[in-house]
Simulated scan of single mutants.
Amino acid sequence: MMSKKITPKYSPEVRECAVRMVQEHRGEYPSLWAAIESMAPKIGCVPQTLHEGVRKQEIDTGRHDGVTRDERERLKALEREVKELRRANEILKLASAFFAQAELDRRLKS
């Protein structure tokens, strides 16, 4: 049996503080990655996790290309809406066919 690695979940406040620390001290290191490697153990996470947070923040602030959190949330909401509308459309098609058949049957009986 393979055991699952448990990844700690950090609150948005902790993530925000960690990213801010990297940004504030970035100039003290030869590279962004060096700053991240230095800060990650102090925060209690692996460098990749902190790098992901920094990257998302750079995207959200327009310093790096990519889809922002707001855009991702809007996209998810639109996808849910499309799914609901397709479901409603299918129900309307079935109801329309049912009532059309009922009208046809009524006309044939008269």
Rank of each mutant, 00 (worst) to 15 (best):
residue 53 G to Y: 02
residue 43 I to P: 08
residue 62 G to P: 05
residue 6 I to R: 10
residue 32 L to V: 02
residue 100 A to I: 10
residue 20 R to N: 15
residue 105 D to M: 07
residue 80 R to G: 09
residue 59 I to E: 10
residue 62 G to V: 05
residue 106 R to K: 11
residue 106 R to W: 04
residue 103 E to D: 10
residue 109 K to C: 03
residue 57 Q to P: 07
residue 63 R to Y: 08
residue 80 R to M: 06
residue 55 R to F: 03
residue 45 C to E: 07
residue 110 S to L: 08
residue 76 K to D: 07
residue 96 S to Q: 14
residue 74 R to N: 15
residue 34 A to C: 12
residue 107 R to D: 09
residue 20 R to L: 15
residue 109 K to D: 09
residue 38 S to T: 02
residue 11 S to T: 14
residue 47 P to D: 05
residue 7 T to E: 09
residue 18 A to S: 09
residue 5 K to P: 10
residue 2 M to P: 13
residue 102 A to R: 15
residue 13 E to H: 03
residue 54 V to E: 06
residue 58 E to M: 14
residue 24 E to T: 01
residue 40 A to Q: 02
residue 108 L to Q: 07
residue 37 E to I: 07
residue 102 A to D: 14
residue 80 R to F: 00
residue 58 E to D: 13
residue 58 E to K: 12
residue 36 I to F: 09
residue 50 L to Q: 00
residue 25 H to N: 15
residue 6 I to S: 13
residue 82 V to I: 08
residue 50 L to E: 03
residue 40 A to W: 10
residue 66 G to H: 09
residue 45 C to F: 14
residue 68 T to Q: 02
residue 32 L to Y: 11
residue 84 E to K: 14
residue 108 L to S: 11
residue 91 I to L: 03
residue 36 I to M: 05
residue 80 R to Y: 12
residue 57 Q to H: 06
residue 12 P to G: 01
residue 90 E to P: 08
residue 67 V to S: 07
residue 97 A to S: 13
residue 108 L to N: 07
residue 86 R to G: 02
residue 49 T to V: 03
residue 110 S to F: 02
residue 87 R to Y: 14
residue 53 G to N: 06
residue 95 A to S: 09
residue 85 L to H: 13
residue 16 E to L: 13
residue 39 M to L: 11
residue 92 L to M: 09
residue 9 K to T: 11
residue 13 E to T: 05
residue 2 M to R: 14
residue 105 D to C: 02
residue 42 K to Y: 03
residue 81 E to M: 05
residue 72 R to H: 09
residue 40 A to P: 08
residue 61 T to A: 08
residue 34 A to R: 13
residue 59 I to Q: 12
residue 82 V to S: 04
residue 71 E to Y: 08
residue 61 T to L: 08
residue 109 K to M: 06
residue 69 R to W: 05
residue 62 G to A: 03
residue 53 G to T: 01
residue 47 P to H: 03
residue 50 L to R: 01
residue 2 M to G: 14
residue 48 Q to A: 13
residue 51 H to Q: 00
residue 64 H to R: 15
residue 49 T to M: 03
residue 55 R to A: 05
residue 66 G to V: 04
residue 103 E to R: 00
residue 26 R to P: 06
residue 14 V to M: 02
residue 109 K to A: 10
residue 58 E to A: 13
residue 30 P to D: 08
residue 69 R to C: 00
residue 18 A to V: 11
residue 110 S to H: 04
residue 60 D to V: 04
residue 10 Y to D: 07
residue 69 R to G: 06
residue 42 K to M: 01
residue 30 P to Q: 10
residue 53 G to R: 00
